[in-house]
Simulated assay, not measured.
Amino acid sequence: MSQNLFEKSILKDMEYFFSEDDLSRNHSYISQLPDELVSCSLKIKDDMILSGLPYFVAAFNYLGAQLDWNIFKEYEGKQFSKSDLSQINFTLPFSLALTGERIALNLLQRSSSIATFTNKFATLAAKRGIKILDTRKTTPGLRGLEKYSVKQGGGFNHRLGQSDVWMVKDNHKSFFGGVKQAVEYFRNMNGFYTPIEVEIHDIDELKIAFDLGVNHLMLDNFTPEQIKEAISLKKNGVTYEASGGINLSSLESYLIEGLDAISVGSITYGAPSVDLSLKYQRD
């Protein structure tokens, strides 16, 4: 990973994140913060996959620090145990440590929480060769971070935006008058390299999608028994994705041979928080 390129790519994000603290309206506060170096310890206080260190480093460097990515890179994506009492040590000017601490920790905690939760799903699904996908149910302003975190946890990104894949959903079918009409609408957009995925709600719709030559099918709110029936009809070159309220407690029943992927919105919007802290003291 080129840390310099990464930091440049999220420069506007950092501007937005720090604008929430509105530091520009209190110049006297900023000017009077001491610049003496402090010894910092990032403490890992939970079982977790540590994710988001590029954002953590970029937050401080946005303020003018010169943190060396080489200090951190070996820890990114690593599994930690609470009992290890692990920590990452580095130094910063007190002014930058104090100013950047909360935003840096917020980003790191959010990313680590998602990566850790995703990994629970991905580890189970991988045993059956099934991929765990995220959705667009992300926090406004944090999609880049959250999608990155899913991959750090062993999951896969579904769509970064609406136009990555033309997704024919139930509202499209309702508006245009059915699967056939909705698929034709998107095909008429002439997106030569843009694939189409159809959200399927029953076996009859599945058969219509096959007749239309659609290769990517989301089996939405199908029961495990319905998925097995759909798999019995599956054609070569077709991808099946299951979706709809699948959680950790129900996941095992959906790990069915012939299913390619399971999309889980809760890995981004419902990830339980992990515990991290940043402590520092004067050298």
Score class of each variant (00 low, 15 high):
19 S>I: 01
97 A>H: 02
61 N>W: 01
238 V>L: 04
158 H>C: 01
282 R>H: 14
168 V>Y: 06
86 S>T: 13
54 P>S: 02
46 D>E: 15
241 E>G: 08
216 H>Y: 07
189 M>Y: 15
182 A>E: 14
86 S>W: 12
227 I>W: 02
31 S>G: 07
108 L>W: 03
172 H>D: 12
18 F>I: 05
160 L>P: 01
181 Q>A: 10
1 M>A: 11
179 V>L: 00
188 N>K: 13
232 S>T: 10
205 E>R: 06
148 Y>H: 01
54 P>C: 10
48 M>L: 15
249 S>H: 09
105 L>H: 01
103 I>P: 00
113 S>P: 02
44 I>Q: 03
85 L>N: 15
85 L>P: 13
128 R>W: 05
240 Y>P: 00
16 Y>C: 09
93 P>A: 01
26 N>Q: 03
127 K>R: 14
191 G>W: 00
148 Y>N: 08
242 A>H: 08
126 A>N: 03
100 G>A: 10
147 K>P: 14
102 R>P: 11
250 S>G: 08
127 K>Y: 01
232 S>Y: 06
143 R>H: 08
111 S>D: 01
176 F>D: 15
249 S>K: 07
103 I>Q: 03
56 F>R: 07
50 L>F: 02
254 Y>N: 05
7 E>N: 05
187 R>E: 13
131 K>G: 05
69 W>L: 04
81 S>A: 01
40 C>P: 14
254 Y>V: 05
274 V>W: 12
22 D>R: 04
264 V>P: 02
5 L>G: 12
113 S>V: 04
158 H>L: 08
111 S>K: 14
275 D>S: 09
92 L>S: 12
202 D>A: 08
76 E>D: 00
30 I>P: 11
207 K>I: 15
106 N>V: 10
266 S>D: 08
10 I>D: 03
177 G>T: 06
243 S>C: 02
97 A>C: 04
190 N>Y: 06
61 N>I: 00
67 L>I: 14
134 D>T: 11
17 F>I: 08
277 S>R: 11
73 K>L: 02
86 S>Y: 10
184 E>V: 15
